[in-house]
Amino acid sequence: MVICPNCQHKEISGAIFCSKCGAQLVDMNVATHKINTAERRAAEGITGGLKSSPPSTLQSWLSLHIVESGQILPLADRTEFTLGRMAEGQPIVPDVDLSPYNAYANGVSRLHSAIKLVNNQVVILDLGSSNGTYLNGTRLSPYVEMPVRDGDIAYLGKLKIQLLISA
């Protein structure tokens, strides 16, 4: 017997989704915390110093797991990141460029959301994006910080990202 953490519905052992509320019952175990610095694709386009910097005092505190492609982007070295999509001939550049992950097709704005580390609590906020930022299914009001737990699912438009907190 499995009990759905979301609606307490009882499911037969071996179920993967709750038939009552549709919640996923199985942990996909994607939270790999071993991160290879060479694969910091997200870091491209951020300040050059970031890639070459040795393991600094501020370790990678958050990883973005792009659910569709399965890639994991570790974020490190600062306490605030803006997420968005780089567009040609545009002065504003997000810290994390999501365009390699179909950001355009998924309706990600150029400056979509920001993720911050405030007093050891990770928060996410929407930066007035056109298609909205959703945390666990709820749309965030623009510029309002929402606390994030490890494993939470955020949607930037339709781009699904799981937030893995390692700090």
Binding site: I16, F17, C18, S19, K20, G22, Q24, V26, D27, M28, N29, V30, G70
Partner: peptide
């Protein structure tokens, strides 16, 4: 086993669950 279910199955079920609801 420690392995999670095959991603193809989970992805199909994630949508099929809605149909079955």
């Amino acid at each position: 086993s420690k392995e999670p279910p095959a991603p193809e199955i989970v992805s199909a079920l994630s949508k099929l669950t809605l149909y079955r609801m």
